[in-house]
């Protein structure tokens, strides 16, 4: 992997202040970050460090209070609501900690909700095969285990062939064995499709499978390190 890749995302001097009614919470206090094409990045930090906020801003789910975010040549910090919707629809795949599947739709249909509005999607079946769920196409979320639900969510996120896959604590609600299955799915997609992937977690073991690890604390990036030897998810333990 060469060092001089193009930065897909570049954030500069990002600040985010949440107005929680009577108190104000400063979640980001000036963050500079680049994410490179096809790279698997892990954002590591304890809860409250601002990593989810950062991810949400990168994904166009939220806006920074100050600072700029660019996705290639788009300035997300200046984008309108309509442009952000467009951006999410065509470029971003999300995976959430609590899966956020639509309970009234089957696995296949949950993926189809996204493929129906995407430009050049895979088939829902294809996406589910990618995460090893070909035999669960017509199951409803309530009929699936947590790990299976999360893999449906991953299939849903990658089915649109997104430019970037953003995962917020994808294994947070899972036991380690199931978590590894999920991480394998992410790893496979990153390798096979070359999808730029950012995973946030507070679990430092997961960081060992990343190309690059970004440590966050209290709204700052405290350090960035590059893994010389990436581990496969199978080799992880926690």
């Amino acid at each position: 992997m060469t060092q001089e890749q193009t930065a897909v995302f570049s954030a500069r001097a990002l600040e985010k202040i949440y107005d929680m009614g009577e108190v104000q919470v400063q979640a980001l206090r000036g963050v500079d970050l680049d994410l490179f094409a096809s790279e698997f990045t892990v954002l590591l930090g304890p809860s409250g460090s601002g990593k989810s906020t950062l991810l949400n801003i990168l994904g166009g789910l939220d806006r920074a209070t100050r600072g700029t975010v660019r996705y290639l040549d788009r300035d997300l910090s200046q984008a309108t609501e309509r442009e952000l919707t467009e951006y999410r629809r065509h470029y971003v795949g999300f995976v959430f900690q609590f899966y956020n599947l639509i309970p009234s739709l089957t696995a296949r249909e949950n993926v189809a909700v996204v493929t129906e509005i995407a430009r050049a999607p895979m088939k829902p079946e294809e996406a589910l095969a990618l995460v090893g769920l070909s035999d669960r196409l017509d199951h409803f979320p309530s009929q699936l285990s947590g790990g299976q639900q999360q893999r449906v969510a991953i299939a849903r996120a990658v089915a649109k062939n997104p430019a970037v896959l953003l995962c917020d604590e994808p294994t947070g609600a899972l036991d380690s064995e199931t978590g590894i299955l999920v991480l394998e799915a992410l790893d496979k997609i990153n390798r096979e499709l070359g999808t730029t992937t950012a995973v946030i977690t507070h679990n430092s073991d997961i960081a060992m499978m990343a190309d690059r690890v970004v440590h966050l604390s209290d709204g700052h990036i405290v350090s960035t390190e590059r893994n010389s030897s990436k581990k496969r998810p199978r080799e992880l333990h926690w």
């Binding site: 971003v92 639509i102 996204v114 509005i117």
Partner: peptide, 16 residues
């Protein structure tokens, strides 16, 4: 409310 948010996260417009 939450389902509205998910649909929006996928890129469905407010109108949709």
């Amino acid at each position: 409310r939450e389902q509205v948010a998910i649909l929006k996260a996928f890129g469905y417009s407010n109108a949709a």
